[in-house]
Each structure stands twice: as C-alpha cells, then as structure tokens.
Amino acid sequence: MSETVRIAEGIHWIGVNDFETHLFESLWPIPRGVSYNSYILIDEQVVLIDTVKGPFFSAYLDKIKSLLPAGKKVDYLVVNHMEPDHSGSIKVLKEAFPDMSVVGNEKTMDMLNAFY
C-alpha cells in the first residue's frame, strides 16, 4: 500500500499515483504517470474529497480504513472531478460505506446516474 500524506491535523492526502497508464485521454503520452488526488478530512464527521480510478480501489480503501478512528465511518463524499478515471471508485465506495452521502452539483448527480 502506498503512503498517506498528512497535510494538517485531521487532513490527509489519500490519492494514488498511477504509473500503469501511459496515455492521457488515450492520446497524449504521460511517461511519469498521473495522480488521482483524494483527501480525507477527519473531525466530528469524516469527509472524502474525490476518489481514484477503479483498479486502485483496494489500496484506496486500505488507506481510508487505516486513518478512520475506531467507530467512525465515512459520512460524506464531495465530488469535484467527474472524469471516470477520477470517479471510478464511487460505486464501490458507496457499497463500502452505504450511509455515506454524496455531495456535488446538479450536473455531478446527473453524470453519476449516467455513469454508474
């Protein structure tokens, strides 16, 4: 499992660096890979900001669980980035945390319904 990065008290980067994808949008070479940036905010409630590409979900979930205090669950997922390589874990994340509320604008919700 790759590392989490502490940003501040209760805030961690939990994203993934993808060195397996070689083309951005199937067109442009990305010889140094691409990052799927995601963050967790842990306070009275737990908030995730964005997710990662589907094939990296297992490592991503391990990071989340390693940071969750005992008895805590993910309360909210804020969706800023809807491209499937950045939002590909939303469906399985919702299965892992069924009470989690998804936060986004109207277009985000339309796209979630269409994609997943």
Rank of each mutant, 00 (worst) to 15 (best):
36 Y>H: 15
30 I>M: 14
64 I>A: 01
87 S>M: 11
71 G>T: 00
15 G>D: 10
76 Y>C: 02
36 Y>F: 14
109 M>S: 12
84 P>Y: 09
60 Y>G: 01
39 Y>K: 08
111 M>L: 15
59 A>W: 02
14 I>K: 03
67 L>D: 05
100 M>E: 06
76 Y>E: 05
64 I>K: 01
16 V>Y: 05
85 D>S: 13
59 A>F: 02
35 S>F: 04
105 N>L: 10
76 Y>P: 01
98 P>Q: 12
49 I>Y: 11
55 P>H: 11
22 H>D: 11
68 L>A: 00
109 M>H: 15
94 K>M: 13
50 D>W: 06
80 N>C: 11
57 F>I: 07
56 F>R: 01
57 F>H: 13
83 E>Q: 13
69 P>M: 04
29 P>L: 07
30 I>H: 08
109 M>E: 14
37 N>M: 12
17 N>D: 10
48 L>Q: 04
109 M>R: 14
111 M>D: 15
9 E>Y: 08
85 D>E: 14
77 L>A: 03
43 D>W: 00
100 M>G: 05
32 R>P: 03
58 S>K: 15
14 I>S: 03
1 M>A: 07
9 E>F: 06
79 V>L: 09
53 K>I: 01
101 S>R: 09
16 V>G: 00
94 K>Y: 13
96 A>R: 02
80 N>V: 08
67 L>G: 01
48 L>I: 02
36 Y>A: 10
87 S>V: 07
77 L>P: 05
12 H>S: 12
44 E>A: 03
116 Y>K: 11
10 G>I: 05
77 L>Y: 03
16 V>H: 05
78 V>C: 06
79 V>Y: 05
25 E>I: 07
54 G>S: 15
107 K>Y: 06
68 L>C: 02
97 F>A: 04
82 M>N: 09
107 K>P: 00
47 V>H: 05
13 W>S: 10
105 N>V: 11
99 D>G: 03
109 M>D: 13
106 E>I: 08
97 F>N: 07
19 F>E: 10
43 D>G: 05
75 D>R: 00
92 V>W: 14
47 V>N: 01
61 L>Q: 05
56 F>L: 02
46 V>N: 01
74 V>R: 01
60 Y>H: 08
63 K>G: 04
70 A>P: 03
90 I>P: 05
91 K>N: 06
94 K>V: 12
23 L>N: 02
86 H>R: 12
100 M>W: 03
94 K>W: 13
74 V>P: 03
83 E>N: 13
66 S>G: 00
67 L>W: 03
73 K>H: 04
90 I>C: 07
102 V>K: 07
66 S>R: 00
11 I>S: 03
41 L>M: 02
88 G>H: 09
55 P>A: 10
12 H>M: 04
114 A>C: 10
72 K>D: 00
30 I>S: 08
65 K>D: 02
